[in-house]
Design a protein around this nucleic acid. Structure first.
Length: 870
RNA sequence: GCCCGGGUGGUGAAAUGGCAUACACGCAGGACUUAAAAUCCUGUGACGAAAGUCGUGAGGGUCCGACUCCCUCCCCGGGCACCA
């Protein structure tokens, strides 16, 4: 008896696959590609190649995608299954700083390790399409795309605060700041520092990003999270005239955004400390009494200095001061006081809130604290019209009730009353219905070395003359060509004077090599210190100009990598890097698998870029990922995250060495539904190994694989095999890998029993359905037992006819009053009368029915239920 | 506080309105072995001698029938957080 020793053949099989090039993608025009069922683009979120090598969590997602890719290939689809590296980013940079090396010298080694590990797992990638986001030949196009987005008016520069550590004199990413507001490395408190940064106008795509979610086959939870992140709210902007205490002459306006204009119950207005009105009061441009001005100034100073920690420490206790100003509530017909408070956030809505304390919890708290009047305008439960004195009496939007104290609205339902109010306000031109979004513009600058250099140049001289790129010849012709999209804001055009893209022919703008680099001390990018690199002639006037020294964020490379994989083109020419036929053939991505931690940002950004590219006429689809499935995390055996500091890390190399790649794959696919979190279990892994060992043994037992096929036992076994094949092919596209494997185990149990044997050619089919999960052992037996010379990976999936799945007999549970009392075997087409007759012969069933009157419920092929009447 | 997941044997889990616990792990007993490992066989939700009763986080509801659908609540995990 030969033993199952995966170590002895897995490497050889891997070499065979490489030699035979079984994973190479067909060209779109090839006969293989056009003859089959069509294309299938299977993609996993590509990894950041860290120094610690592949994690068993990587193994899970990549095996899942691999099972799909292998299954679709065998089923006659033209499959694209690529892999690459998302190698820019903070962790590599920090590791490099620590090691006093350049990331350029570290990353290639990490990639090599990842690739070796992936190959040892038998992942069926077409490595001819491999690339890293850090390859100049790749990021040249990332930079090119940046330039196109700039031309569209989607990018602008603006002073925006960054996190800054005054002690380390360095800018920090959000993730380097601890929750208590200190720097994770030195423990000192961080501050904010204003720096001019590139910002993406993603908000102009908010509506499309929201609407297009409807057509996607994504997990409901992820869709909801995207919707909430975009956070569209339909409401109304209402403009209020401002007067001060002394006279009634309007001296300004406040615009309030609200989704629930309960204006007959409005008794005050609150503005955020950042509101322009506050600034005007402090500067004396709006006159209020000296005390009030001092109060507002003090409150402003205090709240602007407040860090998030201070705010949290104060909890929900409301603070604020009266500004001395009043606003005219034209709906109600009275003046309301204007307050300033930091519970109103500057960047949400208009930064000003109309206070309707009877019908909003926060307004209620504020009114209570500062003794502001509370008016009830909606009846409570059972027509309660009493004054609102407690939080639980507050009637907020969404609750039911009739309007009261609201003149022409009285008696209407609350929801209807709000609509009527908005109509009324619009009719009088006091306000306008608008949508407000949670989504904000995307800060795209990083003051870091390890990212794509932003390919822009700033010319002082052109800036002084007010010349923007859109004033140039190229700019004008671009706008002419793209009239529908390039409605570049006048404000952006003005602010961007002096900024020009570098010449596209000179791309890539390479990241300069330096041995090591220190933080600049100013929070600026290390590139800003490289005076030679930063110098460049202005593309417009030729005078000396300065290159942008910020780099792009890690997201940039992952926003379009799925497009690059589709390219079969060589990179010799300067044009957008994909042939139209490649694009048309492969995109969009059919299957996208990845962790739920990317539920919002990565997916949103990639969707945004695709839409912008569509507007540029470069793509003819609007959504990159048709089907999305999540993979659950793999925790350590102790249910904690795997981490060096816990000493609970499992290295896939060790597992492969001990149990083989197939056992690891089977284990990770079998342990739980694909999208659920699992904790590692070496014991359970051994179960996977045992399963494969039993398969190995049965194929080396000739009595088991040369059954005659004409006796009843063999027929039954073949029928079970067909059912298993059917179950597996139904489960794989639902990513139900665990139940697919369970059904194969079940079949193997049956096959092993007694003298049951499969005919030689039928037994072959079991190897084929096993091969997506355990490709090494399936390939080995395929070649050894069946003497095949071409790979099992490209063999056609064993199809099963529908009639082969029908078995004529069914076991039907028999219930009395819903409790199971027996089981009968019936022809599947049996009538109710036949079923009843048979069931009554069963003593156990009969016992309960004797002498009783009952009715019968019969669902053919499923259940027979007797219900006793009394 | 809000949003998103989840709660079924000793453990990972299966069943999406029709025999609750498939499959696997673990455990117990047995076979093989001088012995161990490996392998194989048998058993394994709880209570009960058995008949049987109970049992899918808790309580209620719909239904002939509920892990599955509806309502109320509890617990665990993740995300956001004074979002107008």
């Amino acid at each position: 008896m030969t033993k199952y020793l995966p170590k002895e053949f897995e490497d050889k099989i891997k070499d065979l696959w490489n030699k035979e090039k079984v994973y190479l993608t067909e060209k779109p025009s090839s006969p293989q590609a056009t003859a089959g069922k069509g294309k299938m683009y299977c993609l996993s979120m590509f990894p950041y190649p860290s120094g610690s090598g592949l994690h068993v969590g990587h193994v899970r997602i990549y095996t899942g995608t691999d099972v799909l890719a292998r299954y679709f290939k065998m089923s006659g689809y033209d499959v694209l299954h690529p892999m690459g590296w998302d190698a820019f980013g903070l962790p590599a940079e920090n590791a490099a700083i620590k090691a006093q090396k350049n990331p350029l010298d570290i990353v290639p080694g990490n990639i090599a390790t990842f690739k070796r590990q992936m190959q040892s797992l038998g992942l069926s990638y077409d490595w001819s399409r491999e690339f890293s986001t850090t390859d100049p030949e790749y990021y040249r196009w990332t930079q090119w795309l940046f330039i196109q987005f700039f031309k569209m008016g989607l990018l602008y520069k603006k002073n925006t605060p960054i996190n800054f550590c005054p002690s380390c004199k360095t800018g920090l990413a959000e993730e380097e700041v601890l929750p208590n507001g200190t720097h994770e490395r030195c423990g000192k408190p961080i501050t904010k520092k204003d720096l001019p940064q590139w910002i993406f106008r993603i908000t102009t795509y908010a509506d499309r990003l929201l609407k297009d979610l409807d057509g996607l086959d994504w997990p409901e939870g992820i869709l909801t999270m995207q919707r909430n992140w975009i956070g569209k709210k339909e409401g109304i902007n209402i403009t209020y005239k401002i007067v001060n205490s002394n006279d009634q002459i309007p001296i300004g306006e406040i615009i309030c955004f609200t989704t629930a204009p309960v204006n007959f119950g409005m008794t005050f207005i609150v503005v955020a400390p950042e509101h322009h009105l506050v600034k005007k009061i402090i500067e004396g441009k709006i006159k209020v009494s000296a005390t009030e001005r001092k109060n507002v100034t003090d409150y402003y100073e205090k709240s602007i200095k407040k860090t998030d920690i201070d705010r949290q420490a104060e909890g929900r206790e409301k603070t604020g001061v009266f500004t001395g100003l009043y606003a005219y509530n034209h709906v109600g017909g009275w003046n309301v006081p204007v307050w300033v408070s930091d519970f109103v956030v500057g960047h949400v809505g208009t930064g000003a809130v109309q206070g309707c304390p009877g019908h909003d919890y926060k307004d209620f708290e504020f009114a209570q604290k500062f003794k502001l009047p509370i008016i009830r305008v909606v009846e409570g439960k059972n027509g309660d019209r009493s004054p609102i004195e407690r939080a639980d009496q507050v009637i907020v939007k969404g609750m039911k009730g009739k309007m009261m104290n609201s003149k022409f609205l009285d008696g209407l339902d609350f929801a209807e009353g709000l609509e009527k109010t908005m109509d009324y306000i619009e009719k009088n031109s006091w306000g306008k219905r608008v949508a407000s979004y949670h989504l904000r513009d995307w800060i795209f600058s990083r003051q870091r070395y390890w990212g794509e250099p932003i390919p822009m140049v700033f010319c002082e001289s052109c800036a002084k003359k007010g010349i923007s790129w859109w004033d140039t010849k190229a700019g004008k012709s671009f706008q002419k060509e793209h009239q529908s999209i390039s409605k570049v804001d006048q404000s952006i055009q003005g602010e961007m004077a002096g900024w020009f893209p570098i010449l596209e022919q000179s791309l890539p703008l390479k990241l300069p090599y330096v041995k090591s680099y220190e933080p600049t001390g100013t929070g600026e990018s290390p590139l800003s210190q490289m005076t030679d690199w930063v110098k460049e002639a202005c593309p417009e006037c030729g005078l000396s100009a300065r290159r942008e020294s910020d780099t792009m964020p890690n997201w940039a490379g992952s926003c379009w990598y799925f497009l690059k994989f589709a390219s079969s083109d060589d990179q010799n020419e300067i044009h957008f890097p994909w042939k139209k036929e490649d694009l048309k053939h492969w995109l969009p991505v059919d299957w996208y698998l990845g962790g739920a931690e990317h539920a919002v940002l990565h997916l949103l950004y990639a969707r945004f870029w695709v839409k912008a590219l569509q507007d540029l006429g470069l793509l003819d689809f609007s959504e990159p990922f048709l089907k999305l499935r999540n993979v659950g995390m793999v925790l350590a055996e102790d249910h904690r995250k795997m981490s060096k500091s816990f000493g609970n890390v499992i290295n896939p190399d060790d597992v492969v060495a001990e149990f083989g790649a197939d056992a690891l794959r089977i284990y990770e696919m079998f342990m739980a539904p694909f999208n659920m979190e699992i904790s590692w279990s070496t014991a359970a892994l051994q179960g996977g190994y045992r399963f494969l060992n039993r398969i190995w043994q049965i194929y080396h037992n000739s009595a088991k694989i040369d059954g005659r096929g004409d006796d009843e036992g063999t027929k039954t076994l073949i029928n079970s095999l067909y059912k298993t094949i059917h179950k597996v092919e139904k489960d794989i596209p639902q990513t139900k890998f665990n139940t697919a494997i369970a059904s194969m185990m079940e079949f193997l149990n049956e096959w092993e029993k007694g003298s049951m044997a499969l005919p030689y050619t039928e037994a072959k089919k079991f190897l084929q359905i096993l091969s997506p999960f355990a490709p090494f052992v399936a390939e080995k037996l395929w070649r050894e037992i069946y003497k095949e010379s071409t790979s099992i990976c490209i063999s056609p999936w064993p199809s099963v006819k529908q009639e082969d799945l029908m078995s004529s007999y069914r076991n039907i549970p028999v219930q009395v009053n819903g409790k199971v009392r027996g089981v009968i075997t019936l022809v599947s087409q049996a009538s109710q009368a036949e079923a009843e007759q048979k069931a009554l012969k069963d003593e156990k069933v009969n016992k309960y029915l004797e002498g009783k009157t009952y009715k019968t419920i019969y669902v053919q092929g499923k259940i027979l239920n007797f219900v006793i009447k009394n």
